[in-house]
Amino acid sequence: MAQNRDSILVVGSGVAGLSASMSLARQGYNCILVEKAGSLGGHAAGYTCKAINGKCQKCGACLVDDLLARFGDFPEIQVFLETRIDRIERKKKGFTASLNGKYGLKDINCGAILLATGFKPFDPNEKSNLCFSSIPNMITAVELEAMLRDKELPYRPSDGRQPETIAFVQCVGSRDPKRGHPYCSQVCCGYALRMAGRLRDLAPKTKITFFFMDIQTFGRSFSQRWASLQQDFIWINEIPGDYFVSDGDRVGVSVEVEDEIVDLSFDMMVLSVGMTPTDDQLTYQQMLDLSMSSEGFMLPDEDRGVFVVGSASGPMSIEKSITDAAGSATRVIAYMEGAR
């Protein structure tokens, strides 16, 4: 049945791209999955489990392994790894996309395009007062994810020692209209607090401080957990102004505490970086004549066969990407069936 239909091109194989292509394939549509990296899975494939004391914290990072395991049931999905899209041409019916990558150059025809190109973690170098590149023990939360996944424990880049005091700075690159990010990235409070919990579970003596504006509700049991989270960590409802190296290798900040500016220092600092549009976004916008949402991400053009799914359309958790992917599959099919 699937042979008679046009294929659907899915760009990006993170949580959204994988979910959407499997949903479409299960519903009888041919999918072509193009991924610029050398492996499937996107960002989430590099995240750590955040379970605490044998209890899942519902971050959803392991779901990507589930998706990849299920992906084996769909040999009919054509996968192009290490492949980019040079050009997309609109035809009377559908599109021709010129793929360029590991398998050489190839033109493929498709009836609809699903952009699941994901996000880019905010680059802290864009915010000069963080002095990110000159403070060795300041890392991003993405780096912490990888650290915990690959080494189980946190360590300081400067000397490999385990930090005893850690500070998380929230909203780095989020809620930042000046830099074109006028949105809450939705995921940072969740990942930061879950990782902080995990860190404390692994090394109970670790003292963890949070600099924050508003802590966002994440997960279903937030209201019960928030009370104990408030006890577990030190909470400072400010974002520091200056960041500097202190005592040789510690991370210092100046911050307002109880109406006075004080300097505090930590063994390590984690920047809870937000989600920003990918560097490819502009290319796709130009190729497909797409406009930008008020949050600065790609807007779809569903009436003309272009769909944007997952965090390519705006900040989104793994959980929401999965829902969004399933929802988009229905809209793509409606388009393919000519129902719209």
């Binding site: 949903s23 299960r26 519903q27 009888g28 929401k320 829902t323 969004d324 992917a325 399933a326 929802g327 988009s328 599959a329 229905t330 809209r331 099919i333």
Partner: peptide, 18 residues
Amino acid sequence: DLDQEIPAAVSQVKELFA
């Protein structure tokens, strides 16, 4: 959320039937 969940429900049930 609801705007995504409704079409997602359609996909979910069609996938399951398939």
